[in-house]
Design a protein around this nucleic acid. Sequence first.
DNA 1: TTCCATTAGCGAACATGTTCACCATAGCTG
DNA 2: CAGCTATGGTGAACATGTTCGCTAATGGAA
Lengths: 215, 215
Amino acid sequence: MEHVHHNCLYTMTAQQKKARRQQQKEDTRRIILDAAYVLFAENGYAQTTMRKLASRAGVGLGTIFKHFQNKPSLLVAAYQEDLGKIVVDAFKSLPEAGIKKQLLHITERIYGFYATDPSFSRNLIKEALFLKGEHGEILDNQLMLFLKEIAELFKKAVENGELPVDTNVHKGALAFGAFYFSGLIMGLKQTTFNTEERLDFVGTMIDHHFFTKNR
Amino acid sequence: MEHVHHNCLYTMTAQQKKARRQQQKEDTRRIILDAAYVLFAENGYAQTTMRKLASRAGVGLGTIFKHFQNKPSLLVAAYQEDLGKIVVDAFKSLPEAGIKKQLLHITERIYGFYATDPSFSRNLIKEALFLKGEHGEILDNQLMLFLKEIAELFKKAVENGELPVDTNVHKGALAFGAFYFSGLIMGLKQTTFNTEERLDFVGTMIDHHFFTKNR
DNA sequence: TTCCATTAGCGAACATGTTCACCATAGCTG
DNA sequence: CAGCTATGGTGAACATGTTCGCTAATGGAA
């Protein structure tokens, strides 16, 4: 990443000039974010002091707060890209057959991420849960998109004839979301995340909710 | 509440003497807890500093930490009695007919509590979610008891013939728990808790999970 | 080019949760 | 009663997230 040199200013177009400062800001933001990602992973959330982070990123303490409202926002920002990629990957590698298999596939991928470091994941979930401000809204949007994608899977399952035609795909997605989220929280409450067990729970719930004939 | 006077020591039985110091400790704990309850309710969680609380309770700053591990524990301790009462009341005033009605009744009572001050409730849930230490375990036990009670309701519904005999009451309770919890979180994510809407969600989910004939 | 407004960058200062060494007393032991 | 131990009570000290006024440089305006 090569910075435009100061002397060249007069050769730049207006747009280039306009973009330069903004670009520099974006760069330092990136530096902070990357340093945060590493430090959080290496030393955990609480142990990663804003001062240590500033030092590691090579910026001033106050600079961090010019880019992120507070520590929780920074935590969420540092890991939402990762999580986003995992979700995208999960949807790309979807099994062809069966809505249940598909849902469990996605669940497994995401649980896998949280399972690698439960203690850290607890902090992440805790801080992300009711996060306010810019990053909170980003999270909400991602959640909304996620549910929309899930609903899409349900829609296809209905078209396949796997689910009855009167299925409300939106409600279906919400039900799955409830199972997924509860399973996640239950798993994280234990010291080690038992993915097997949690997947079994979600699978059972899906079975009962979507594939059981009652009375 | 009248304290035993120092001079009377020699007239006390061994047990009374033994109990005295412990009793005094319990008393100051109570004083702190009550002051915390009031201050949290009046000024909110973040605005209630440990110093203000110490001042209000008439104890030293350090004293608080002889009774509670940290601020989140104090928050949870201050409100888990309230919540416990609400749950007990909800079970006492249970409608006779219909498991769905019963579940929604309980849900409504609890949501009602959280709805009165969503901002505060967000803090409470956030801090209680993965709370460690003594108070975390108490919470877990209460949750377990709650689920057991719910399972009991399911069992009765099975005996009534309202639900099929092969119903797994434990799984049923967990499913309800997932709906209840998700509904709570969704509701609290909004600035004002729309109890009506959330109850509708939980009701719909219960209907679909327990009373829908699929295919 | 020169001037001006905006803002990224910065760290001292502040607020607050938490720790800890110390004190006083309860309550046991002889 | 006399001495000892354990511990409730205490606030100074500390660590850390966050704020805020300052500086310098960017980039637009005259």
